[in-house]
């Protein structure tokens, strides 16, 4: 007697290849107070991967413990304004357990007029 049921196994593989970002964060990292990675760990990670490029800012925010910011951004804008802007937008989506990666583009538009 033949077996009425037939079985087979297949495997499908899909691959997505992309370049590894160094560091694996962009311009800003918002770190919640109960996030699995704390600001000190994040700082050490980025300092090993991209030495001296990021700065850590502890906050007094109820849910956000700190933000890690690319130093060059802090040179482009007044630091307090930039930090409060990041917190203002970050707190809308972040809670204390989250780590949020932020891409931040700053374009400075200069317009001058001069007499000819």
């Amino acid at each position: 007697m033949s077996n009425p049921t037939e079985s087979s196994k297949k495997v499908e593989i899909s691959m997505r290849l992309s370049e590894f970002e160094i560091p694996p964060m962009q311009d800003v990292l918002i770190i919640g107070k109960k996030a699995p990675i704390g600001p000190e760990a994040a700082k050490r990670m980025v300092n090993i991967l991209s030495p001296d490029q990021y700065e850590i800012r502890k906050t007094e925010h109820p849910a956000i413990e700190a933000i890690v910011v690319r130093k060059s951004l802090l040179n482009m804008l007044p630091q307090d304004k930039l930090v409060s802007l990041i917190l203002e937008e970050g707190e809308k989506i972040a809670n204390e357990t989250m780590i949020i990666k932020v891409q931040l583009n700053i374009t400075i538009i200069v317009s001058k007029s001069m007499e000819i």
Binding site: A35, P36, I37, G38, P39, E40, A41, R44
Partner: peptide, 8 residues
């Protein structure tokens, strides 16, 4: 969080 390091 238990995943954190002592520094954090």
């Amino acid at each position: 969080h238990p995943n954190r390091i002592a520094a954090d």
